[in-house]
Deep mutational scan, measured.
Amino acid sequence: YIGSKISLISKAEIRYEGILYTIDTENSTVALAKVRSFGTEDRPTDRPIPPRDEVFEYIIFRGSDIKDLTVCE
């Protein structure tokens, strides 16, 4: 799965898409590269977040912050 395009939804209901870079089982983290944030879209939340235009080089997510993770390709 390393190198695959991943769609990830955080506990804050924010969806991110990026390339799976590393999975650290010891620290329970997932790192994505070339990440875009799509905001909360239409998911119900107390704090709606708009999508962002910039592409983040890397984002490291803690396993406890991840609600859903899907391989896109």
Rank of each mutant, 00 (worst) to 15 (best):
L20M: 14
T22S: 12
I23R: 12
V55M: 12
P50Q: 09
L20T: 06
I66E: 04
T25C: 06
E54H: 08
N27W: 13
C72W: 13
D53C: 08
E73G: 10
D46P: 10
S28L: 08
K5Q: 03
D65S: 07
I6Y: 11
T25P: 13
I9V: 06
R62L: 08
Y21V: 13
V30Y: 08
L69V: 09
S28H: 12
K67Q: 08
E73I: 08
E57L: 03
G3V: 01
R47T: 11
F56L: 14
N27V: 03
S10Q: 03
A33V: 13
Y16T: 08
R15C: 02
L8D: 01
E26S: 08
V35P: 00
R15K: 04
T45I: 02
I66V: 08
A33H: 13
R36W: 00
G63Y: 06
T22F: 11
I14N: 13
P51L: 05
R15M: 02
P48M: 07
D68L: 11
R52S: 13
R15D: 00
D65G: 03
R52W: 08
L8Q: 00
L20Q: 02
E54A: 09
P44V: 15
I9R: 03
I60W: 09
V71I: 13
D42C: 09
G39P: 01
F38I: 00
N27T: 07
I66T: 00
G63T: 14
I6F: 09
D53H: 13
S7W: 15
G63C: 14
I59N: 03
K34Q: 15
C72V: 12
K11S: 10
R36N: 06
G3P: 01
F61H: 01
A31M: 05
K34S: 10
L8Y: 01
S4H: 09
S4M: 07
T40P: 03
D24Q: 01
V35H: 03
D46N: 14
I59K: 15
R43Y: 15
D46C: 13
P50A: 10
L20P: 01
R43I: 00
I60G: 07
I6A: 09
F61Y: 00
T29Q: 14
D65M: 07
K11M: 14
A31D: 00
E17G: 01
K5D: 07
E17V: 11
V55Y: 06
I60D: 06
V71P: 15
E13I: 12
E26N: 07
V71T: 14
F38V: 01
I6K: 03
F61G: 04
I60R: 14
I60A: 14
V35A: 10
Y58L: 12
R47S: 13
T45E: 05
T22N: 15
P44W: 12
T22K: 10
I59V: 09
I60T: 14
T22W: 11
I23H: 15
F38K: 08
D53Q: 08
D46Q: 12
I23K: 04
T45N: 13
E54L: 05
T22H: 06
E57S: 12
A33L: 07
E73L: 07
G63M: 12
D46K: 12
A33M: 11
G18F: 01
I14F: 03
T70Q: 13
D68W: 02
D68F: 01
C72D: 07
I19K: 00
E17P: 03
T45P: 03
D24T: 05
F38T: 00
C72P: 06
I49D: 00
I59R: 11
D65C: 05
R62K: 06
K11E: 13
T70L: 05
R47M: 15
P44G: 14
A33D: 11
F38P: 02
G63S: 14
F38M: 14
E57R: 08
R43Q: 01
T70I: 07
T40M: 00
N27C: 07
P51D: 04
P44Y: 10
R15I: 08
I19S: 07
T70F: 03
E54N: 06
C72K: 12
I6L: 05
E54Y: 09
A12L: 10
S4F: 07
L69T: 08
C72F: 14
R62E: 13
D53N: 08
I14Q: 06
D68G: 14
